[in-house]
Design a protein around this nucleic acid. Structure first.
Lengths: 229, 229
DNA sequence: CGTTCCGGCTAACGAGTGTTAGCCGGACGG
DNA sequence: CCGTCCGGCTAACACTCGTTAGCCGGAACG
């Protein structure tokens, strides 16, 4: 049913906003955290209708103030995008690094970074969607910086696939294509995943991790018999 | 090297424009085909910088005329998008139908529609990229129509996966996820494929078709022995 | 040779939008 | 009770863009 289009429901938040949660929420929303609320609203709009299509007035509407009033809390629309995208890529890299640091054989590590990849794209589909679709709307110093982070993130997949192929754990014809295929199927999740549904992100992640290893020709849990087809 | 971002080089054309090629090209470009040339220019710009970011003046520049002059050949910017997206989805469905009509067992048919899917996304990556990223910029009667076509296209994958699972040719936990994974890894191709490289689209398509069947747990050419690994 | 019309061009309109300027009420510290 | 400053608001500026209006040269055709 959720045909591949822009994300359309649910709730997520930007890392920087989610970090500081004190407790007060109902009584008029103290004073702090306005910045975080604005980023949340912007994120949701950027994800559902796109950065260029989103107007400052719309962002303001979401938190009950007028467009120009936003400038009391943020410097510009562009800055919001930067904050969202940088936060997203940094969080993604952090999780990937943790998954790799946990050790294990090639196959385990690949399963783990694939699962992390997919789970993030399901749980934080707004950030993920924006992170992948709005890169060209970043102005130039930041655009290249984010692109570098992305390249780093992607290269971890390729290196791992390559390592597995050299060890003959994986039997694939091209490291690059295989790693792109794994990355892209995970990215796709952020476009159709429905948080209201009955599917838990970690369940989806486990399934996709199995897709990945099967795709690489390492279907069975035991790595003892490589005999690559 | 081609990090997942907007497509950035090469040449393709919209179906409607590619159809009528007479022969004359160098000598001043007769009179006809102006419409097709405009659509080509628009397509390239929509794909590389996005529909909203593209201005009529830029499209005009590509063919050496001013923005307002475009209106002697097209009705509106929106109409160009509609023409591009409708042409793309119809062509994709046409190819998919042909692949299915060619018959064969479930596994063969799945390999074939996957290969068609991937090959189109490599050969016509501009149309494909626009087709997947600019849906929300379509105005309403058309948006739903295109979305219906897409749902139809996607459901063919899911039905085939389901058929294979029921026949126990495929061993997958979820038809839906598996078909989405296959679709998404193909869609991703349109974002990074480089036509200037040494990789032929059909070669890529064959590799991805194998990824798909492996992912579904039907790794070997012979359907007799399922034994994974 | 005249007319018609195709396909350019410039000027201009009108709507939309990010951002700035400047005002003002009210909470809070002294 | 007074001043300060936070955080709203409206008005307005400065663009950008899609699109329309109207002009005009020149090719094609009778």
């Amino acid at each position: 049913m959720p045909t591949r289009e822009r994300p359309s429901g649910g709730r997520t938040h930007v890392p920087s906003a989610a970090a500081r949660r004190d407790g007060s929420d109902a009584p008029g929303e103290r004073a702090a955290d306005r910045h975080g609320a604005i980023l949340d609203a912007a994120l949701e709009l950027f994800a559902t209708i796109g950065y260029r299509a989103t107007t400052m007035a719309q962002i303001g509407d979401r938190i009950g103030i007028r467009g120009p009033s936003l400038y009391k809390h943020v410097h510009s629309k562009q800055e919001m995008l930067v904050e969202i995208m940088a936060g997203m890529m940094e969080e993604l890299l952090r999780r990937q690094r943790a998954a790799l640091d946990a050790g294990g054989d090639v196959r385990e590590r690949l399963e783990r970074i694939t699962a992390v990849h997919v789970q993030y794209h399901a749980e934080h589909r707004y950030e993920a969607f924006v992170g992948h679709h709005e890169i060209d709307n970043l102005e130039e110093p930041e655009r290249s910086r984010i692109l570098d982070l992305r390249r780093e993130y992607e290269s971890r997949f390729r290196e791992l696939v390559q390592e597995g192929r050299e060890l003959e754990v994986f039997g694939t014809s091209s490291d690059r294509w295989a790693s792109y295929a794994i990355l892209d199927m995970g990215i796709g999740v952020s476009a159709w995943y429905n948080p209201g549904g009955s599917v838990a992100p970690d369940e989806l992640a486990a399934t996709y991790a199995e897709f990945a290893v099967r795709m690489l020709g390492a279907g069975e849990p035991t790595a003892t018999g490589p005999r690559g087809a």
